[in-house]
Amino acid sequence: MKKSILSLCLIGGIFSVLPAVAGPEEDRLAMVKYYSDRFPDVPMQEFANGLYAFDQSAREQWIEMEDFPPYEIAIDDGQVLFETPFANGKSYADCFDNGGIGVKQDYPYFDADAGEVVTLELAINQCREANGEKALAYMIGELAEIAAYMAYTSRGNEFAIQVPLDSPGAVAAYSAGKQFFYTRRGQLNFACSSCHIQSAGLNLRADRLSTTLGQATHWPVYRSKWGEIGTIQKRFAECNSQVWAKPLEAQSVEYRNLEYFLSYISNGLELNGPASRR
């Protein structure tokens, strides 16, 4: 206790000297420590399963659902889409490292030339447009299916998001994502952190709130409430609506920065998408 007060003071001291931010790795380790203390019985990798890490009855239903995973069709359809060549004869495989197989652990990344965060979904559309195809709609549909297939081929890989400290743009994007995460929005005045840090594990009505740690590992997700597979940014939009804020556009700078921050926080956890959630 004394120690934590001391370290709080130290952190406070650092903040007052450098009002910018602690580094990404310090943030991640602090997050890991916070949730490990809050959920001492949950093994680290289990945080990738969201509320099923600590809600036993929800977990049982989820495991049952995984017998016939509702996202399976999306993986199959996504594979067909992924492997179908564009009109110019090229395909998605030509746009990505390793032919696009097992690469999701590297997304999002900061594109220093473009000066922006590139999510997997954005990269898929950039690939299409570079090959003369129309961009697909974000959040649901074919794009989510392609992402589901790419996530599937990346299962088991450890998240390895890079925020190069010698890249001011990358650090700024990460910091902006962090700020967004802690910023109160909407008429109900919640920040992401209000629910997913301060209240992680508690119930809103019958639903237990997930931890920030592991929140980015399992996308896209087939959510029973949606009745379809959707991307992480669809969930951002939904969270914003739930606090009575008008959602921002999918792949807006803010949402991409947020995804960058959240993904970095889950570094070291194994990817486990696509997944099902209720």
Binding site: L8, I11, F15, A30, K33, Y34, Q179, Y182, T183, R184, R185, N189, A191, S193, S194, I197, Q198
Partner: peptide, 15 residues
């Protein structure tokens, strides 16, 4: 809210 949170968001950072 947006203007005040530009500064006050740090209050929500608990660690």
């Amino acid at each position: 809210q947006a203007i005040s949170q530009e500064k006050d968001w740090q209050e929500n950072v608990l660690f």
